[in-house]
């Protein structure tokens, strides 16, 4: 909350941004250089999107913006003005996990879980582009996401399983 107050009140020049996040219209006046990841986490309270390296390398902050996966630590909220954003919170519907979430759970695609929202959002984009990926294509698709725990095997397995589930 302290962070939210800071973002909203200390700016010398505020800018208004509005975007649709997980289908819900949101708008706020913010500091112009607020990163999208902070807007989502601190202004909207959607802390499912994680903030790791802050240098565009780890992928923990991956969200979908206007249909494309992007790293939200590497984008200003003002650049997303008018955009449609999907975060990890937008995947489960009516208490039902999304098939990708289910597949990560069933295949032990996580240990500490820090990287997981980013991997799931990247997998979401990947499977939209290519519903039938090979293992090689999955590995290439998630090369912008880093996991320090799992060794990736189960993440790849989870994404391949999710592809099967989503065909059903």
């Amino acid at each position: 909350m302290a962070r939210k107050k800071q973002l909203l009140e200390t700016a010398e020049t505020y800018v208004s941004v509005s975007m649709k996040v997980n289908g819900v219209p949101c708008s706020a006046k913010i500091e112009p250089r607020t990163l999208l990841v902070h807007f989502l986490r601190d202004v909207l309270g959607l802390t499912g999107t994680h903030w790791g390296c802050d240098t565009g390398n780890c992928g923990a902050c991956t969200v979908i913006m206007n249909g494309k996966s992007v790293k939200s630590c590497n984008i200003f909220a003002v650049q997303a003005d008018g955009a449609e954003i999907i975060t990890i919170e937008g995947l489960a519907k009516d208490g039902q996990l999304h098939p990708i979430q289910e597949a990560f759970w069933e295949n032990h695609g996580l240990q500490c879980g820090f990287c997981t929202p980013g991997f799931i959002m990247q997998a979401y984009w990947l499977l939209q582009q290519n519903p039938n990926p090979t293992e090689e294509e999955v590995r290439r698709g998630i090369s912008g996401n880093i996991c320090r725990c799992t060794g990736y095997q189960n993440i790849v397995k989870a994404i391949l399983t999710a592809a099967e589930k989503m065909k059903r």
């Binding site: 992928g59 996966s69 790293k71 984008i75 984009w125 090369s143």
Partner: peptide, 9 residues
């Protein structure tokens, strides 16, 4: 260039 997320933007 980078990864998919970087190429996208």
């Amino acid at each position: 260039i980078g990864s998919i997320q970087i190429m996208n933007k």
